[in-house]
Simulated assay, not measured.
Amino acid sequence: MTTRIDRRFEALKKEGRAALVTFVTAGDPDYDTSLKIIAGLPKAGADVIEIGMPFTDPMADGPAIQAAGLRALAAGQNMKKTLKLVKDFRKQDKDTPIVLMGYYNPVYVYGVEKFLKDSKTAGVDGYIIVDLPPEEDGEFCIPALKAGQNFIRLATPTTDDHRAPTVFHNTSGFVYYVSVLGITGTKAPDLKSVKANVNRLRKHTKLPICVGFGVKSAEQARAIAKDADGVVVGSALVQAVEKSLTKAGKPTSKTAKAVHALVSDIAQGVRS
């Protein structure tokens, strides 16, 4: 069974270009603004959209995404509203792949079977659950695959040739290569290292490899797109949200526009 993610990467391969994968946090800074941001991403140049599921203890995320999660939670965002966000997006966009990204705890609390059913009904195509290693595939990965959805795994600079086959065993959709060691959005990727590791990991998987963590500019995106199948931008977009808010943390008329303008700029880099 092919998913929207599979079809999108196949189409981009025929176009001969890399994907732009954008990450934003669900409900940041509030539900309506979040929906407006997500709804405008495809037109701005996003090929795949990752939506962060807000969580109180996001251990892999840097200050920007942590702050976004806290803003969303303070505004009343929860899992039901996150799935509603996808459902509302799907009313106007049937084609752009949606990936939910986050931690296992909120999924476990919601109930895996119910979560998979409700998220598929809403229009979710795949998942990145950062704290579920391959050894725990029975918890969520395999049920997701059986439901006809993709389970996208993270690979890092420390994913060596011995570990890679285990990491990629049940991975589908694409591989998310974490270009730096540490948390999101705090370091710039080393382009030589990215190229070497992407080429090394290709020996272990035929899946598209998308590179993220620390990508902030069109120039970086252009350089990474030469070697990778996709470029992931997250913290920079979340920071664009934060910078547009009032001192009280409320959205302004510039909030969605700021995100879409940055996506458009980076998309030009990916496409050039």
Rank of each mutant, 00 (worst) to 15 (best):
P251H: 10
V21K: 05
T252F: 13
D30G: 02
A267P: 00
A261M: 11
T205Y: 13
T22M: 08
S34Q: 11
K226V: 06
V86K: 06
D160W: 11
A228T: 00
Q239F: 00
I5D: 00
N150H: 07
G173I: 04
I224D: 12
Y31L: 15
I224T: 05
V194T: 04
A144N: 08
T159L: 11
T255C: 11
P133W: 14
V233Q: 09
A256N: 05
G126R: 04
V107P: 01
A122E: 12
E242R: 10
D265L: 08
K206A: 15
Y108M: 15
K14V: 08
F140S: 09
I51Y: 12
G45M: 11
V130L: 14
V238K: 03
G212E: 03
P251K: 10
Q92N: 14
A225H: 12
L116D: 13
L20I: 06
P143R: 08
D131I: 11
K13L: 02
D190P: 03
E50P: 10
G249K: 05
G212Q: 08
G182C: 14
T25G: 03
H204T: 03
G249H: 09
A155R: 05
V194R: 07
A68L: 06
G123F: 08
I183T: 13
A164G: 02
I209V: 13
D265A: 10
G126S: 06
V175D: 05
V263P: 00
P143K: 12
G182Y: 12
A164L: 13
V259Y: 02
A68T: 09
G269M: 03
E113I: 03
L191T: 00
K216C: 05
A196W: 05
T156R: 04
G234Y: 06
Y127P: 02
M101W: 00
G185S: 13
E50D: 05
C210R: 04
V175M: 06
D28F: 14
E242F: 05
I152G: 09
K80Y: 13
G126T: 07
Q268L: 14
P208W: 07
P54R: 03
K84N: 12
L20A: 04
S253V: 12
P42G: 11
A75D: 02
S235W: 14
A223I: 02
F115D: 09
C210Q: 04
V238A: 15
S34H: 13
E15G: 01
S272D: 15
S179L: 08
A147P: 03
R71E: 04
G27V: 06
A218N: 02
V238W: 13
A72F: 01
D61L: 07
E50A: 09
D32C: 02
T159P: 05
E219K: 10
K206N: 13
A147E: 14
S217K: 03
F9G: 00
S264H: 10
V194A: 11
